[in-house]
Design a binder for these strands. Structure first.
Length: 426
RNA sequence: GCCGAUGUAGCUCAACGGUAGAGCAACGGUUUUGUAAACCGUAGGUUGCGGGUUCGAUUCCCAUCAUCGGCUCCA
């Protein structure tokens, strides 16, 4: 009989202590723990493994990410589309998913027809492309969708929000000519870099090249790989090459993010696809009138909202920057006679579209402050006799503590600036 | 899916063969407070679900679902 034994060894006591400190910190930042503590999300046995319930607090964070995403995509020439979450099995025969991913898909039968809960969005996007004739003149076409998909992941692979069975990809498919895809890839890299910088996330990039059993011509693979390398070099970004690790349908660039435990997670990915456009018989008319097959790029920026936000929770240790914070300000009247003035401040905040809450419970100021701190609310406005006299508010931040009294109007202006710029200014 | 572990109140945990207990949260009351927890009280559980062993199971056994650590796989 074989017995497996795991051990971790250290040369010195200091190394051991460092390791233990790191574990403790990782536990403190664990998104699953913070998910309960901060009332962000839950998983329920009766719903099913790997299916996330987003609570109102995390709903706010998601909305902010989605708003930012839509704005950036509109700005960068994407068309936003919506497609169904299920499709007849026939569609997945065309795409080849039934052949390759059968074990990972959810099937159902209705009216003696087989349907599939979609594991990917691409087939739908290609059908939209197919809906009309295309000319080289209107390429590239960029279809984007926050597409929710379902994949039957192995039970042992599930992990909090970062590895689940139902998730929303911030997906897009770009249809372009062979002369355009390098430029398109550079544009995507820009968007990824811009987005990850916004969250102060560090990443590493991996380029995966042609595997055994690839589809498409050697010529286009070489052009594609060279194109990806060229794009990386022109962007002056370091990357490592995973020789032969590309998908059978095309080479790809993967952006890896780290969680609190130092584990790396796949985030953004940019994949060239020489296969699906052929399977779906996609065409466009070239200058000379001939019909050509477009190059398709699959790409995600966040990857999935579930995983990305899980990583963000750990990255910020639950203390979201003001623009993302579920609750941005708590107004704390010290005694009952301060509630009226506090309420007027609260109404002003609300009118300014700032996520605020008036804590007018008959609890002590210290209790309210503690609760706001525990909930990691970025700002507290404490209101007492002094503040009412001077038309001010005593400002406390979750990180710097008491900042003293400030003019209410001026403070709200700063706060608004901080939210709009998505950067800390106070 | 595999190897190992765990599942007790909303949360964090205790009790471990003799009809479940605390703190916090919730609710009611008192208190009106100056920068991280005022005080008193009330309520809350077929111990994940199903079976078995036993006079008796939260406790032991089996199965199942879920979670956790690792492997494999992936966004």
């Amino acid at each position: 009989m074989l017995q497996r034994i795991y051990a971790t060894a250290f040369w010195t006591k200091e190394d051991l202590k460092e390791h233990l400190d790191k574990l403790e910190e990782a536990e403190r930042r664990d998104h699953r723990k913070l998910g309960t503590q901060l009332d962000l999300f839950s998983l329920r046995e009766e719903v099913g493994a790997g299916l996330v319930l987003w609570h109102p607090n995390l709903g706010v964070v998601r909305q902010m990410l989605e708003d930012y995403w839509r704005q950036e995509h509109r700005r960068r020439g994407y068309d936003i589309i919506y497609t169904p979450h299920i499709a007849k099995s026939q569609l997945w025969d065309i795409s080849g998913h039934n052949e390759h991913f059968k074990d990972n898909m959810f099937y159902m039968e209705v009216d003696e027809q087989d349907y599939v809960l979609r594991p990917m969005n691409c087939p739908f996007h290609m059908l939209i492309y197919q809906a009309k004739r295309h000319s080289y003149r209107n390429l590239p076409l960029r279809y984007a969708e926050l597409g929710t998909v379902y994949r039957y992941e192995r039970s042992g692979a599930l992990h909090g929000m970062t590895r689940v069975r139902g998730f929303t990809q911030d997906d897009a498919h770009i249809f372009c000519t062979q002369d355009q895809f390098i430029e398109e890839i550079k544009r995507i890299i820009d968007l990824v870099d811009h987005t990850l910088k916004l969250f102060d996330l560090e990443y590493t990039i991996e380029l995966s090249t042609r595997p055994e059993g690839f589809v498409g011509s050697l010529e286009i693979w070489e052009k594609a790989e060279a194109g990806l390398k060229q794009a990386m070099e022109e962007k002056n970004l370091p990357y490592v090459i995973n020789e032969g690790d590309g998908a059978f349908y095309g080479p790809k660039l993967d952006f890896k993010l780290k969680d609190a435990l130092g584990r790396t997670w796949q985030g953004a990915t940019i994949q060239l696809d020489f296969n699906l456009p052929i399977r779906f018989d996609l065409k466009y008319t070239e200058k000379d009138g001939s019909l050509q097959t477009p190059v398709m790029i699959h790409r995600v920026i966040y990857g999935t909202l579930e995983r990305f936000i899980g990583i963000l929770i750990e990255h910020y240790a639950g203390a979201f920057p003001t623009w993302l914070a579920p609750e941005q300000v708590v107004v704390i009247p010290i005694a009952e006679r301060h509630v009226e003035y506090a309420n007027s401040i609260y109404n002003t905040l609300k009118d300014m579209d700032i996520r605020a809450h008036l804590d007018d419970r008959s609890e002590s100021m210290n209790y309210k402050i503690r609760e706001a701190q525990v909930n990691k609310v970025p700002y507290m406005m404490v209101i007492g006799d002094r503040e009412i006299e001077t038309n001010q508010a005593s400002i406390r931040t979750r990180t710097k503590g008491d900042l003293g009294s400030k003019d209410v109007k001026e403070f709200i202006e700063l706060l608004k600036q901080e939210i709009d710029s998505k950067k800390s200014v106070i």
